[in-house]
Nucleic acid binder design. Structure first.
Length: 209
DNA sequence: GAATCGATCAACT
DNA sequence: GTTGATCGATTCG
């Protein structure tokens, strides 16, 4: 296994989810390159997790990528939007980390064009991120982040001043893990979904440097 | 037909 | 600025 893949296994999924905050995610499409710092993630713990697509060992052709090697991309559609997970843990262990929000660093114009929005509304939610990146189908599903046009730069990281934790957004509260604290975000960063204006740090965006 | 890891717009403070 | 109802694509049972 490459060092790149090793990042996505050998430690708890929650820890990987926190380590992804501040990493730059980029997507090279035919229309151009867009990129942003990851500011919000959610951990999905697989077969025991009532909010996971693999709950109770559920395994279908649709979610097969979740069972793939660490660092695989899992693209899924919800209502009219595309979202994606970074698949973590070893092959056959269907855990994933949902990338929920980015702080744009490159390709602002392209994102604005795709979203018909400006500012934080470009990328402060998983479906919005998908649209800003230009995901319009599932063709990246099952590809490795290491070599796909959609990738995460693990060679550097901008450190959050502090990491916020909460329950996950939009999951069924009745499940056993409905309320589990598995959502992680850069505290006070304005691009985090549901971040209130009054809680936003408009100077440093919650970064430590 | 039920369920789903969401976004938008209208209505209100 | 914030809250709450409505729209809606696809897959699975």
């Amino acid at each position: 296994m490459s060092p790149y893949q090793a990042f996505f296994t050998n430690r708890p999924t929650e820890e990987i989810a926190k380590d992804l905050l501040g990493r730059e995610l980029s997507y090279q499409s035919s229309a151009g390159r867009v990129a942003g710092l990851i500011v919000e993630t959610e951990a999905y713990l697989g077969e025991q997790d009532s909010a996971s697509h693999a709950y109770n060992g559920r395994r279908t052709n649709y979610s097969e990528a979740l069972y793939g090697a660490p660092g695989t991309i899992y693209v899924y559609q919800i209502r009219a939007h595309y979202c994606f997970d970074a698949v973590v843990q070893d092959q056959e262990e269907p855990q994933g980390i949902l990338i929920r929000a980015l702080e744009p660093t490159e390709g602002l114009e392209l994102m604005e064009e795709r979203r018909h929005q400006v500012g934080v509304n470009l990328t402060n939610g998983p479906g919005k991120v998908g649209q800003a990146l230009g995901l319009v189908d599932r063709h990246l599903d099952g590809q490795p982040l290491e070599t796909a046009p959609l990738s995460i730069d693990l060679t550097k990281r901008r450190a959050p001043q502090s990491i916020g934790v909460s329950s996950r957004v939009g999951v069924n509260q009745r499940g056993s893990h409905g309320n589990a604290p598995l959502r992680f975000f850069v505290d006070h960063n304005p691009y985090v979904s549901k971040m209130l204006k009054r809680d936003s740090d408009l100077v440093n965006h919650g970064w430590g440097d």
